[in-house]
């Protein structure tokens, strides 16, 4: 243990050896064997997913080590872009009926960019006051958590929007025929889509600490932070996530519903394609 570390946290991080990790991986192997014995048919997927997580996390660990040592804005920006583009792809993958062409990817990516990046920036500069603001030890984890959560919010909201628009074609067109403009005609579907995107984070905030300790707080406590400090950071993150998810879902639903109509305010379901 570092002799210069502050004295207050009496617990310190016990380093995990490769041996410890392989012990834990035996549990996954056991799960795969069970899946094979019970004919669940997911043993291959369990093993592949476990291997993927091992490779991806080790790589990220290496990359972050490099980034932390350099604190170079271009490198950090590149990392952020990679994270964003993967998240955009993931949002697109989760749509039953997605927008055709570049919109299928663009709506999700743009709305996540606007929400996650702006909220992260706000947190770094105004709330936490990191110096310089792009210090990767703060920026990357914050952005990662925000992207991960806005990603599910945006994906759920967009999926809801397009699915319900598809199912409610008759009712939307009836409203158009009654002389309503496109925003009135899609209003109820839009509201429902936004609500569905916000429910997960609202639920998460409502049960935080009662049912499970949120992952980030758990990590900090394991790493030896005083529980109160961990709780404060977790609270900050939750507020940021709530704001980011709300903002992201709103942008996505607004862009998506706008794209469902053309300049003559016709409902254009032909702009949606069914996912294979």
């Amino acid at each position: 243990m570092d002799a210069n570390a502050p004295a207050s946290p009496s617990i310190s991080l016990i380093e995990l050896s490769p041996w410890d990790l392989s012990l834990a991986s035996l549990l996954v192997l056991l799960l795969a064997v069970l899946s094979w014995r019970l004919r669940l048919g997911v043993e291959r997927r369990v093993l592949i997913a476990a291997a993927r997580s091992a490779v991806q996390l080790s790589l990220v660990g290496l990359v972050l080590k490099l980034l932390f040592a350099q604190t170079s804005l271009p490198l950090i920006g590149l990392m952020a872009l990679v994270m964003l583009s993967v998240a955009g792809f993931e949002v697109m993958q989760r749509q039953t009926r997605r927008f055709g062409g570049p919109w299928g990817y663009g709506i999700g990516a743009v709305s996540m960019f606007l929400s996650s990046f702006s909220v992260t920036l706000l947190a770094l500069t105004v709330v936490i006051g990191v110096e310089p603001w792009y210090q990767p030890q703060y920026l990357i984890p914050l952005l990662g958590m925000l992207l991960g959560n806005t990603m599910s919010g945006v994906a759920i909201a967009l999926d809801n929007l397009t699915r319900h628009a598809w199912e409610s074609r008759g009712r939307i067109e009836a409203r158009l025929l009654a002389g309503q403009d496109w925003e009135q005609a899609i209003e109820h579907i839009r509201r429902e889509a936004l609500r569905s995107g916000l429910i997960p984070i609202i639920n998460a905030m409502g049960t935080a600490g009662l049912v499970s300790l949120p992952g980030m707080m758990t990590g900090q406590i394991l790493a030896g932070s005083p529980p109160m400090d961990a709780a404060k950071y977790q609270l900050l993150i939750m507020f940021l996530i709530a704001a980011g998810t709300g903002l992201g879902a709103m942008v996505a639903v607004w862009m998506g519903s706008r794209r469902l109509f053309d300049e003559r305010q016709r409902l254009r379901l032909d702009r949606l394609t069914q996912a294979g």
């Binding site: 009712r171 067109e173 009836a174 158009l176 025929l177 009654a178 002389g179 403009d181 109820h188 305010q265």
Partner: peptide, 28 residues
Amino acid sequence: APPVWRRRVGLLPAESFWWAETVGEHFP
């Protein structure tokens, strides 16, 4: 504007759709 056009040239589709709870709510 499209909403104005659709009010002035009214289409009655073969299948009628209703978006609100009661009949009267569809009569602004």
